[in-house]
Amino acid sequence: MSKVPARGRPADPTKQLLQKEKLLDAAQALLSIKPYRDVTIRDLAEHAELNSAMIRYYFENKEGLFLALLERMSQQHFVNMKQISTRQEPIKEFIHFMLKMLTKNTGLARLIHDEFSKDNSELGSAFIEMFPKRMAKILPQLIKNNTKITDDKKAKYAAFSLVSMIIMPFVGREVRERAWEISDEELSNPAWSEHVYAMFINGCG
């Protein structure tokens, strides 16, 4: 027997936070199942087992909910980035972390692809601010600290190339699977992470 969605906004701030987290979790889960444009308010409410009015109360609309999801993912991502920078092999750890994150959140790559193809997409603009722009301030220095590269511009180019190597197989999933016959499972395999690392390090000279 399915649960009856909770109705109304709780007065307890802790319960309000719990409701928001349930909606964010629902958005993240549904994004791995269907494209963003196909996710409905009803889908989100049913998955979170909450009244749909809670989405409007906490986030105003579906887009607001997914903007909040990007913010949560960004915060988690850059907390991990700080930890990675202190590891013995930070570039290898970075590649492994990024591949694990993208494999776990396949819908994120689809969201990036779909929203970047639109003009004036608030989600696309938010993603650039929350992920690539922040990464562009951190990754080049990490590369300078752990490779033979010392020039700022070359470090920036190397950082962009590394991120592209990691992300493109997920963004171009259909071509990867249909033309190259490389599965999602292969991308989650340590052998793929080692391959990307070797290609990058050898390219750095």
Rank of each mutant, 00 (worst) to 15 (best):
L111D: 01
Q88Y: 10
R37T: 08
E71L: 04
L18F: 07
F97A: 03
L187W: 08
K62A: 03
D25E: 13
A6P: 03
Y197D: 03
F160V: 15
N145H: 02
L142E: 05
G8I: 10
G8Y: 04
R110E: 07
A6K: 11
F160I: 14
K154Y: 06
T14K: 15
A136T: 02
I55D: 00
T103I: 08
D184Q: 04
T14H: 14
K144C: 04
N61R: 13
K15E: 12
K100M: 05
F59K: 06
E60Q: 15
E186H: 15
D114G: 02
P13V: 11
K137Y: 01
I128F: 01
R110N: 12
H113T: 12
I128W: 03
H77P: 12
M1E: 14
H96Y: 08
V4L: 09
N189D: 06
N80P: 02
M54R: 01
F78R: 08
V79H: 09
R37A: 11
V163T: 11
F78P: 06
Q28L: 10
N51C: 12
E177T: 14
E60F: 14
F116L: 05
H113F: 10
E185T: 14
K133D: 11
I33R: 05
E185D: 11
R42P: 13
M135P: 03
A29V: 08
S2T: 15
I91R: 00
S125T: 09
I95N: 02
I167K: 12
M165I: 04
N202F: 14
Y57N: 12
L30Q: 00
R7M: 11
L108C: 05
N145R: 06
T147W: 01
L187Y: 07
E181F: 13
T106Q: 08
K133I: 05
T147H: 02
K144D: 01
S85Q: 09
L111S: 02
D184Y: 02
P190V: 06
E181M: 14
F94T: 03
M1A: 15
I33E: 11
A6I: 12
E49L: 11
H96F: 09
R9K: 15
M165Q: 07
K3R: 15
E177R: 13
S193R: 00
S32H: 07
L24Y: 00
Y58F: 08
V196F: 01
L17D: 10
G124I: 06
I91P: 00
S2H: 14
G107E: 00
V196Q: 00
R72M: 01
E115P: 01
T40R: 09
L44W: 05
R87D: 06
Q75D: 14
